[in-house]
Write a protein that binds this DNA or RNA. Structure first.
Lengths: 197, 197
DNA sequence: GTCTATACTACGATAGAC
DNA sequence: GTCTATCGTAGTATAGAC
């Protein structure tokens, strides 16, 4: 932390990703900008371009980290839910709401259309692993079913979690003064209702 | 339609709202701009400001029209679903997916945070009527319940419809080459599963 | 590896001509 | 009621100094 004449990060690359999360949590992908991230770190608007070729490469790195962390959070929530496969799948919806409510980096960022044609093997791997985790949870819940049915169940769980999260982020629930934990609990309940039994 | 020296709309105000819907459907609220709407109508970027004080007033008018039309679509879908109250509520989710898939003007536009402090009595009235319609459908479905429970059920229905719509708009389902009607059907099924019975 | 400075683009909004 | 022209702001990205 010794102050020199010029600002010196130990690892600006990592700091940019971290600050990007904070900006996304506050403003959403809508108002995300490389310039604002740089401003928050006290570096010039040119500095990020030493570490990322362009805006999309930075967002791709954020997507990679978010997919990894979200998957970890989902697996932890599933394990905390116990052995019942339905409860484990439903718990993933709650983990999604809490993680995205805290970080702002959900499906809209992780699978952003803007990143569709950005080549990034690390991101591809993490997003695939995240989907695999959801498919595993869906496959275990409700007993044996066909693969297409498992996909539909996983997508339904994501849809309900994403729906609640998105409405929450947009202030739709503001009047109720709901907390992220309230919304997470409602998402878990709804996700549980979607599981065939 | 007689071509004069300068572009002359019979009703530029209405044309601006209509073109705004098309732009929202194509690009979402993210890339909506007054300038682009004007460009598509072949008028100057200054022309819209004769009819709307600023960007938010235009969006507020779009929100008003969307709330009215969405409510109409939901009521039509409920009526088409027959007399079963649960089927009527579930059908509203399908109407939401189809309307928003077609117009791009869903909850994110109708209840946009950007419009929170824009005074517009027409919008307030239409958004209230839309919510009332959803609460009526939720109140009728599943028999007598407390008001807070009715609100939770209405919000759950909106969340699942919005979740599917948002994922669809962001291309999350692209690999399946799903159509909006496929997604609407899945939203109806999911919404039906959320209703207590 | 970060800086300053700059080119370019785009949008929101206003002034004044017609 | 629409135009042209313009200002101010902000973002993406690059060039070249240090």
């Amino acid at each position: 932390m010794s102050p020199g004449r010029s600002y010196h990060h130990g690892d600006l690359r990592a700091a940019l990703i971290e600050a990007s999360f904070e900006l996304l949590a506050e403003c959403g992908l809508r108002r995300f900008s490389v310039a604002e991230v740089a401003r928050r770190l006290g570096v010039s608007s040119a500095a990020p371009y030493r570490h990322f070729a362009d805006r999309r490469q930075l967002l791709s790195a954020v997507s990679t980290a978010a997919a990894r962390d979200l998957r970890t959070a989902i697996e932890a929530a599933a394990d905390a839910a116990g052995d019942d496969p339905a409860a484990r799948l439903a718990a993933s919806a709650g983990a999604y709401v809490r993680y995205v409510g805290r970080t702002g980096a959900g499906i809209q960022v992780i699978y952003a259309a803007e990143l569709y044609d950005v080549a990034d093997d690390a991101r591809r791997e993490q997003t695939r692993a995240l989907m695999t985790t959801m498919l595993d949870l869906a496959g275990a819940a409700g007993g044996a079913r066909t693969y297409p049915e498992v996909v539909l169940l996983a997508e339904a769980t994501i849809a309900v979690a994403h729906g609640y999260t998105s409405l929450f982020a947009d202030g739709f629930f503001a009047r109720n003064s709901s907390t992220v934990d309230d919304i997470a609990a409602r998402a878990v309940e709804a996700a549980g209702a979607l599981i065939p039994h």
